[in-house]
Every structure is written in structure tokens, then in C-alpha cells.
């Protein structure tokens, strides 16, 4: 099975789910002639059509990355999500240094340059954002700042 066929199948299922979701939308008695359901249904129908075309006529297989690259991207995803969750509680400097070092290491497997990138970026960006642009960032965890 080619990637496009699987993708087409996902699209078809998504379009059906979207259509079902559109049927559930509550309308009020004061609605206009079209109402809030019709446009989403039109979108679902067009997407369904596109999905079917993809299943019928898939393109050539794209070049998917090797397993190791998928692993790296999964790690990157975890790093980014943790960064999003930790930037508040941990403060800007630590979380940014860790996340930037992580992303850097994933692109070029060099611990030294990655660590330097992390440290450098977190300091430079903090100074630019906080003092240059005047954003309200916290350098350290808020608990420390009293």
C-alpha cells in the first residue's frame, strides 16, 4: 500500500467524521437560510472527494526518512512539548538553554557545540526579548523571585 493511499483513507475517514460532527451542530431558531451546518458539510464533501481521488490515483512514494531520523524527530517533539510546558514554571533561562541545546544536538550530534548553542541562545535571546523588546519574561522560576 502506498503512502498516498493510506493518506487518502485517513482523509476519507476524517471527512466522514467531520460530516457527522457537522450534523451535531446545534442551530438556533433564529438562523439564516443556510445555517451553521451547510458550509462544514460542503467542506467535508469536497475533502471526501479528494480523499477518494488520492486512493484511486496515488502519487509516487515520497522519500520517508530512516527509522533513526523518525526517532530523532520523536525526541524533538518531546523536547518541544516539554519546553512549552516548562517555560512558565522553570523560567526562561533554564528551559530555553535545555530546549535549544536539545534541538541543536538533534541536528548536529555534537555535545559541545549543542551545549554552547543552548547557553548562548538563552542568554542572548533573554537580553534581546527582555531589555530590547520589553517582553515580560521571567529569568528564573517565579518561586525564587519572591
Amino acid at each position: 500500500m502506498s503512502s498516498d493511499r493510506i493518506f487518502g483513507l485517513v482523509v476519507v475517514m476524517g471527512a466522514l467524521a467531520f460530516f457527522a460532527g457537522a450534523l451535531q451542530i446545534q442551530t438556533s431558531f433564529l438562523s439564516d437560510p443556510v445555517g451553521p451546518r451547510v458550509f462544514p458539510m460542503l467542506i467535508a464533501a469536497s475533502a471526501l472527494l479528494c480523499g477518494l481521488v488520492l486512493i484511486a490515483k496515488p502519487d509516487a512514494e515520497p522519500e520517508w526518512p530512516a527509522l533513526a531520523a523518525w526517532g530523532n524527530m520523536a525526541i524533538a517533539l518531546v523536547v518541544l512539548v516539554s519546553y512549552a510546558l516548562l517555560i512558565g514554571p522553570m523560567g526562561f533561562l533554564t528551559s530555553t538553554a535545555l530546549a535549544a541545546a536539545g534541538v541543536s544536538y538533534l541536528i548536529e550530534k555534537n555535545a559541545r557545540t549543542a551545549a554552547l548553542t543552548g547557553l548562548g541562545l538563552s542568554l542572548v535571546l533573554f537580553v534581546i526579548f527582555k531589555y530590547g523588546l520589553g517582553l515580560g519574561l521571567f529569568a528564573f522560576p517565579r518561586a525564587w523571585m519572591g
Partner: peptide
């Protein structure tokens, strides 16, 4: 290099 640029883009 990309290993400085891309972390920077992400953080910004």
C-alpha cells in the same frame, strides 16, 4: 550553521 539557526528559530 543550521545547529545554531534552527534552535534560534524555534525559540523565537
Amino acid at each position: 550553521p543550521a545547529w545554531v539557526l534552527m534552535p534560534m528559530v524555534t525559540m523565537v
